[in-house]
């Protein structure tokens, strides 16, 4: 009996493996839900998909949340969480506006770089506190969430940056499209592909999964856990910084309350997309589709005649359903293991 516990190598070809992976993956399931939502909304009102404006909105609306969800997914994969991204976004969005106001003629590329660097710096603060202080990230980033927001409030006051304060070339990024695809969406997707590629094919990326899967084992393996965790927070902060610049370009007006509550949407998007809240599994692709689904559902439900209260409830139900599903599958798997061990 004992030898049956050995797991035979699969005899399937690479192509068969790829097909079955795609068919059974969480990402495809969420993408399918997204397609269903879009089709349902379109069947009620054909302009949901088939007008140039709404096609652009379908792609453009999720771009900010997508950036945040990608960063959030990287942090959650290492078994942490970053609640400060909304405040980071507000800080860098306001910084973007101030840069244009105080330095007329500053190149747009420089503003992007400064925004990303500022976000990375705020992420570094989070990372250092979490990795060196050995305090749960939930508590640390809850604290920095309020601190960063406080800085924006102090700095901006009741001041508000308007579209007229920023150069039109920068604001045009918010509406410009290339082959009907909005530029901001292209930026978000390029970031997504780069991060997804890193997580899948780089040693550092795989180590993030290892750390989230079992931090003690990662330590025994001799991985540099501290460095990797700090790196994840820096990346998450940098993406929140980029999202702040994108926010400024898209909306044109920035107040100190920008991005309030968006950090929880980012966590929700990652969880819906199959990133396990206890780390170690999930992909940024899933988180990105989750972000897209969240935004699109919010736009589609009014069209489907769902009332405001139920719109929020649907999003909540989606998050709970995703977690319950993960849990049920995990319990079933571990029960099978125990039975197999007793039988042998």
């Amino acid at each position: 009996m004992s030898t049956t516990t050995l797991v035979e190598p699969s005899r399937r070809s690479a192509a068969q493996r790829a097909v079955s992976t795609i068919l059974t993956s969480r990402e495809s399931a969420i993408a399918l839900v997204l397609v269903v939502v879009v089709l349902a909304a379109t069947s009620q009102r054909s302009s949901f998909l088939f007008s140039s404006d709404s096609w652009r909105d379908l792609l453009l609306a999720p771009s900010i949340l997508l950036l945040l969800a990608v960063g959030q997914a990287v942090v959650i994969i290492t078994r942490s969480v970053d609640l400060s991204v909304g405040s980071t976004l507000a800080l860098t969005a306001y910084l973007t506006g101030r840069l244009f106001v105080d330095n007329p003629g500053i190149p747009v590329v420089v503003v992007f770089l400064i925004g990303i660097a500022a976000g990375a710096l705020l992420g570094l603060v989070n990372g250092l506190l979490v990795a060196l202080g050995k305090v749960p990230a939930l508590v640390i980033t809850l604290g920095t969430m309020y601190i960063y927001r406080g800085i924006v409030l102090e700095w901006a006051g009741s001041d508000r940056i308007n579209a007229s304060d920023m150069p039109s070339g920068f604001l045009a990024l918010g509406t410009k499209t290339i082959l009907t695809i909005p530029v901001l969406t292209i930026i978000a997707v390029v970031v997504l592909v780069a991060v997804g590629y890193y997580l899948r094919t780089a040693r550092g990326g795989r180590e993030l999964y290892a750390i989230g899967s079992d931090p003690d084992a990662a330590h025994l393996y001799g991985l540099n856990v501290r460095k990797r965790v700090i790196g994840a927070f820096v990346l998450c902060g940098a993406l929140a910084g980029l999202a702040g610049v994108v926010y400024a370009a898209r909306y044109g007006t920035i107040s100190s309350s920008a991005g309030t509550g968006i950090e929880l949407q980012a966590v929700g998007a990652a969880v819906i997309g199959g990133v396990a809240i206890f780390g170690g599994s999930g992909t940024v692709w899933g988180a990105a589709i989750g972000a897209w689904l969240l935004i699109t559902i919010n736009r589609a439900l009014p069209i489907l005649g769902v009332q405001d209260f139920w719109q929020r409830a649907v999003v909540g139900a989606l998050i709970i359903a995703a977690i319950v599903l993960d849990r049920v599958l995990a319990i079933r798997r571990s029960r099978k293991l125990i039975e197999a061990r007793d039988d042998s």
Partner: peptide
């Protein structure tokens, strides 16, 4: 044994020193 349950057997073998 100290393994990473969420990763494949191969990744567990080579974590931190994968052939690049």
């Amino acid at each position: 044994p100290t393994l990473f349950p969420d990763l494949s057997v191969t990744e567990n073998l080579f974590m931190g020193r994968q052939p690049v």
